[in-house]
Design a binder for these strands. Structure first.
Lengths: 344, 344
DNA sequence: TTGAAAGCGGTACCAC
DNA sequence: GTGGTACCGCTTTCAA
């Protein structure tokens, strides 16, 4: 490896016959330096291809202009959108981003946080793993003076800024849409009761039904254990084979909806005529399946952008962490699976 | 922000009444230090929660244990798999990863490289943007002694290790499979002629046909301009409306295949009975569409892993960059779209 | 086996 | 407006 030694401030100072401090000030265009000196120094630096040694600067300033970003899953439409948004915003603000994934495991999460600390990121954006129920490991970061912003999957009791999807509103809109399409027996495949997002979506579902005086029997809400296609299939089967099958299903994620759709198609239930179907997350595949799947878009890109923005603002302002929640609105994407040609 | 000052080597030395260098050596378990000292120092460090200041270490050692990873697109099944693999391998080797995306733009790519240099990554893994035709910006990195490993979309003439998909082999397998399923008139929706991956897939297609004595007319190969669903649709229409329509189509990516499938379904061409269809990339959605799409899996995770492994080995060995190519084998995933029930 | 001390490349404070 | 210099925290050479 070449490793052609870079030119340093000292070199420039020597060659120009001035002091190191003057060179430093000139390059940073400090006030109290003559235009002349600035020009000379900058020209010389340019010509000799001077690049400041970031490690030295970081070390001296105790700042790295690097942010940490921790997600549960990387190969995932929503989270890759979040990362994309965070990267875009970070770039705008002059930061770089260290990415880590926890695969929904607490031990990986702890490791990631330690690594971030070790790499001296200035602050961290994190979406917690499903296993995380305490904030003690995260406190370490804060103790080190590295602010945290939580997004998507957050710990309510942990006092940091939070950027989350407006799950309640999204679920409400989805169910309201089904109602407006004339569906009257609307079931809901929900997730883990403990997970905040799941709870909010359930509440949105219930509120919409209540507002339209269409309360449903208890059996119409099923809590999935792991969010998988298989579960969507299995619970849809359960619902459809029950004495009182629904005429529409609101699924907590598109993956569940895929399983649901599979069952319905295999068993000759026509979508959307006989059964309406709607998902949540608006994966790329929602467009490509047949019938195309209506879904609630969570605007992952915006969430990443916002989380990064809040974090950088925090870094600049030096204010203490505020326990503030930023809700990002969803939007309903209506496709074939919930659109009845007739009765509306 | 709290910023509770961390304890330093100097603190430990003072409190223990020994010298800083001894503390440093003890903590790093250097030889030539008494077991006793090591134990005492480590215990004290542990107790007082000593964490070395990474920025100082980086500065001193001129190493960051951070790698750069540059991809054209982030919200993309293949690339997020690559990132996932690279992160996993990096973690194993004790490195962290700075991620950047170029959105297929050369100027973004240049910016990303500069940023990586600025952040003093030890080395970089990169998949080039479509706009990149010269390596001059990349040379900068190498001049700084930061090795590069290219993956997926590479510049042949740029002498660095390369980790790429065995496109030729994957295409060959796909076409061979179609032939074995009894298809005889196999068309190919290819990509940009200039792009290496596209060329290799075309060659694989041609070789398979040749080996089975099934050479096809020139009109059976169409070069898409931008890889989009619309193009898949448009060119499939062109093919099917021609005087001599094919009975199978090998698409350069799953996205093209989606457009193709859309056209075929809309126009009553039954898949796979009348027309066989096969894609390349094996997106998550290939499973969920109807009929499910046969596709060539590119093993993105493995590519990321391998790229990272090669890079770290390079970093450790300090050897000069070798112009070596690592081919990652694909695997054919056969699903409904290419499986004729009858004649095989 | 240990200590003293010289930096790594900047920044910023204090003089002049 | 400029120069001198201490120092950030750690590693490493040299000497004892």
């Amino acid at each position: 490896m070449a490793d052609r030694r870079r030119i340093t401030l000292k070199d420039i100072a020597r060659d120009l016959g001035i002091s190191v401090s003057t060179v430093s000030r000139a390059l940073n265009s400090y006030s109290g330096i003559s235009e002349d000196t600035i020009r000379t120094v900058k020209a010389y630096a340019e010509e000799h291809n001077y690049v400041p040694n970031t490690m030295a600067v970081n070390f001296r300033k105790n700042k790295t202009l690097t942010l940490g970003l921790i997600v549960p899953e990387l190969v995932h439409y929503f989270f890759s959108s979040v990362i994309s948004g965070a990267l875009a915003e970070a770039k705008k603000r002059g930061y770089t981003v260290l990415v880590s994934q926890t695969s929904e495991s607490l031990s990986n999460e702890i490791y990631a946080i330690r690594t971030m600390l070790g790499s001296s990121v200035d602050g961290v954006m994190i979406s917690l793993s499903n296993e995380t129920t305490t904030s003690e490991y995260l406190e370490e970061l804060i103790e080190e003076g590295r602010p945290i912003v939580q997004f998507d999957k957050v710990l309510e009791g942990f006092k940091t800024p939070k950027v989350i999807v407006d799950d309640f509103d999204g679920a409400y809109a989805a169910v309201e849409h089904l109602i407006q399409q004339g569906y009257k027996k609307i079931a809901h495949l929900n997730g883990f009761k403990q997970v905040t997002n799941a709870r909010h979506r359930l509440e949105g579902y219930q509120k919409a039904l209540k507002d339209y005086h269409l309360e449903q029997p208890e059996e119409y809400v099923i809590h999935c254990k792991d969010i998988s296609e298989e579960e969507g299939y299995r619970y849809t089967k359960e619902l459809m084979e029950s004495a009182n099958p629904p005429d529409a299903i609101f699924c907590i994620t598109d993956l569940i909806a895929m399983g649901s759709m599979k069952y319905l198609k295999e068993n000759g239930h026509r979508i959307p005529e006989e059964v309406g179907l709607i998902g949540f997350s608006n994966w790329d595949m929602a467009n490509f399946v047949t019938p195309s799947l209506s879904s609630v878009d969570q605007h992952g890109f915006q969430i990443g952008e916002k989380a990064c923005q809040v974090l950088v603002d925090l870094l600049k302002s030096q204010e203490p962490l505020e326990d503030k929640t930023y809700l990002i609105k969803t939007s309903l994407v209506v496709r074939e699976s919930s659109t009845r040609q007739s009765n509306v």
